[in-house]
Design a protein around this nucleic acid. Sequence first.
DNA 1: CTGAAAGCGCTTACAG
DNA 2: CTGAAAGCGCTTACAG
Lengths: 347, 347
Amino acid sequence: MSKRERQNPGAVTILDVARHAGVSPMTASRVINGNPRVGQDLRDRVQASVKLLGYRPNLAGRSLRTTSSARIGVLYSNPSAAYLNELMLGVLEQSSLSGAQVLVEKCGGIASQRAATRRLLEAGVDGIILPPPLCDAPQTLQELDERGIPVVAVAGAQVAGVSSVRIDDYQGARAMTRYLLELGHTRIGFIQGDPDHTAAQLRRQAFLDTLAESGIQLPDDHMVVGMFTYRSGLAAARQLLELDPRPTAIFCSNDDMAAAAMAVAHGTGVRIPDELTVVGFDDTPVATTLWPELTTIRQPVTAMGKSAVALMLEEIRARRAGRHRDATHQVMKHALVKRQSSAALAS
Amino acid sequence: MSKRERQNPGAVTILDVARHAGVSPMTASRVINGNPRVGQDLRDRVQASVKLLGYRPNLAGRSLRTTSSARIGVLYSNPSAAYLNELMLGVLEQSSLSGAQVLVEKCGGIASQRAATRRLLEAGVDGIILPPPLCDAPQTLQELDERGIPVVAVAGAQVAGVSSVRIDDYQGARAMTRYLLELGHTRIGFIQGDPDHTAAQLRRQAFLDTLAESGIQLPDDHMVVGMFTYRSGLAAARQLLELDPRPTAIFCSNDDMAAAAMAVAHGTGVRIPDELTVVGFDDTPVATTLWPELTTIRQPVTAMGKSAVALMLEEIRARRAGRHRDATHQVMKHALVKRQSSAALAS
DNA sequence: CTGAAAGCGCTTACAG
DNA sequence: CTGAAAGCGCTTACAG
């Protein structure tokens, strides 16, 4: 014991646990991994030892035996920095848990996209994760699929044969629209996202459908096209705030554009939320940076990154075992996060 | 070969490389790790094989031998979400490269800080990384140090015996101030960060010193205290923009407050950068979200996260080997990033 | 239900 | 300068 300690003070291995519990390492391993074929007596003893010794499995050791070093590529192109950060957090966390390695490549246009894909494949990646907006490039998806490379798309359109992780953008936008209606707003401005993005289309459609169901006919000038960028949000918000009568609420298709809308309001002296409700979509870090903090639809981006990796590893393992897996579409839960940028219509 | 392929298609191991190059695995390992004591001939052959076979080391295997499963805790408390994300990206990346495991705990007040620390230690962490603002709580630092737990502070004050990773905030703020002077600005508003943060103090001091060197005497009302938050930036910017004559430039102690300053300007109809230059500090994702994009001092946060982990692992290894290491203070390079929010003073 | 043996991919220490 | 042996921590087969 004292020798162990000198060598590596923090390291309690499964051997220590086994010895302490008086069982073989195999039995300890089984208990730790939740294998049910272990007697209750031994199970209890092992669990007690794990707790007492503060044992935590060494993931390197584990993954060396299990996953045999899967390699996952992430190919991205010009997304919001905050979004990518959050996604990568999940990707890296799950990869590290599963003992997979991650390679990241950035690309711009179609040509550089091909080159980036080639680099990833030459580096021996077993599959590629595509965050938005690449997940919306059907050509890329299909090309990879045809070459037999497993792909997991994050958000984006559903493409046959390609697994994906997403939230239900339609239901999210619907929930937000209902919320605005409940607050009493009916003159609602809407800033759309990049029309090429599936998510933008769904959010817009949900907004319109929900209003229509409530019998509200929105003037055309209340719908403004943005590009998901802060800059486009500035222009769109100026347009909306110049309307007469002014909308009492603005629903922005993402948080960056909502930040821009709030900037315009701040400067024009329009008070939020007293005179104007502003809501966003995504719940990126900017939502809690702003003041008042932004009401928005939370997209569990980090969890989506983890799921994308998990899906990918299942796919890789299945292929290695010669099994076929159908494409999986995992829909994660969104949530309406109410903060201070929204309020009931003053009557 | 065909058998290998069936088992694990993507996996080229160091044995494959060694066989292909006609050397022992050890020689291959040495070449791959840059060990200079290998003959040029063998070196070339191994490198060619690595390239040809697309070999990438399996990190799980490597770390199993080297780091022996170090466990690193990250204890944070209410930083900007964007900053933490970026930092964690580096922390996770380096940990995964080094085969270390990461445990994260959040805490609020002092009591919850003690509890969080205890949880980390019970989980067997070998050391703790403290991002701001905890790095600025000398009490926490000392307590951990006294208990013999290795600590690496990210940013924050220099405390004896505690290693840290930082940029030179003073030189960064100095560079930015010089830049503003070069652009011809002399009526410069300054929004300070949280006075309790070492970084805020240094940035402020550098600004004042640099102006003084140029013989510029700034009226007191051009220095406004903020708290590093967007909200505090809004109030501070309003105050500055009401001055008569108005400052021609505002130097904000971080990007979040710069975003707020831009919001106020946008609304007041003050054009950036034509009528007002706004600059920030940190280069968080918000800097490129804004429009015009923000001129700021880039702090390599992700690289700092990596370095913090690397420092920590060195420290842990040294202790395990019974060696003593003096506290290391690693100063990373900052950079002045010129974007569209700054311009020469119109004459 | 339980365990002894072998091996995942790599590198540390030991020989030459 | 080069290599044969052993082992990091864990789990997959194989026995009983």
